[in-house]
């Protein structure tokens, strides 16, 4: 068990920064965190440089709370806004080239499986819609075809946020954004159907309106990926900068979008359902 690696040598303890000691004493390692504990425990991510009121930053915070065994988890990200905070979380984070998340995650998962056959190690890909549905599309699809056992979480802000608001494949048809001067000419890519067709074991779509649902969904996605097969979560995490949403209106926007076109979807294979019920007592 790698919990011992979280504690440093006792003689160093008096000299460690408070944040570090808090992580050891009040952090989520070695226990499963509950949403109700937020505020009384040390979270994996506290500070980040993402925009004020960014829905993606909030979603990432909830996701980190959901990780069942952070001491045995690796997050794989890529270029895009999300990595700005993910790279500051108290969890190993791998940041390669733009497009490579699902290839890198494949290698990490397989390498860890060879070295630690008795200890599950959860690998979680978290990247933007451009990173997963455009430039990284092939690697995402092929990791699903190969049934690689890790979770893929799309931070879908429907735009290239980090490069200043260009059209992505997940932008809605007709939307006028940069590089779509007369409005996007084709439909938002239907990644859910593609996941379905690829035999992904657990598929979910959600927005940020319900924190308990975020934690629940992400936890299931990670657990199913551990034993059953690839999982996919697609989260609407609006970009307030590029879609001009004032920070105080971010939740309102999410509620509206959820009602109009981004309703909660959850599908899983029989094997996934059985596993969650039997092993984890999750319905």
């Amino acid at each position: 068990m790698s919990l011992k690696t979280i504690n440093c040598s006792p003689v160093f303890m008096p000299y460690m920064p408070k944040e570090y000691l808090d992580l050891i004493n009040k952090g989520p390692f070695g226990k499963e965190m509950k949403l109700s504990q937020v505020g009384s425990v040390k979270e994996l991510l506290e500070e980040h440089p993402m925009c004020e009121g960014c829905a993606m930053a909030y979603f990432i915070r909830m996701t980190l709370i959901a990780i069942p065994t952070p001491e045995h988890s690796v997050i794989v990200g890529t270029a895009g806004c999300g990595r700005l905070s993910l790279s500051q979380a108290a969890i190993p984070f791998v940041y390669g080239n733009y497009c490579d998340t699902n290839g890198v995650a494949t290698g990490i998962k397989r390498g860890l499986a060879l070295r630690f056959p008795e200890q599950h190690k959860d690998v979680i890909v978290m990247a933007g819609d451009g990173g997963l549905a455009d430039i990284g599309f092939s690697q995402v699809m092929h990791s699903w075809f190969r049934k690689e056992k890790f979770a893929t979480i799309m931070l879908d802000n429907e735009v290239y946020g980090n490069t200043g608001g260009q059209e992505s494949g997940m932008t809605r048809k007709g939307e006028v954004v940069k590089m779509a001067p007369v409005g996007k000419q084709f439909e938002k890519i239907d990644m859910l159907s593609l996941a379905r067709a690829s035999g992904v074991a657990y598929i979910a779509r959600l927005t940020i309106t319900n924190p308990a649902r975020i934690v629940n969904t992400i936890r299931k996605a990670i657990l199913v990926a551990r034993e059953i097969g690839p999982t996919y979560v697609q989260a609407y995490t609006s970009c307030n900068i590029e879609y001009t949403i004032p920070p105080e209106k971010v939740m309102d926007d999410a509620r509206r979008v959820e009602q109009e076109r981004y309703s909660f979807v959850e599908e899983m294979s029989d094997a996934a359902r059985e596993y969650l019920e039997k092993v984890h007592n999750i319905k």
Binding site: V104, G107, I108, R115, Q139, H142
Partner: peptide, 25 residues
């Protein structure tokens, strides 16, 4: 462990991930 990747970018990316975990690639 061995597999046929989707393309060279996929193969080399996966190698990069695997090597980070300490296995010989």
């Amino acid at each position: 462990d061995y597999y046929r990747a989707e393309d060279e970018v996929g193969a080399f990316s996966a190698i990069s991930g695997a090597s980070r975990t300490g296995v010989r690639c």
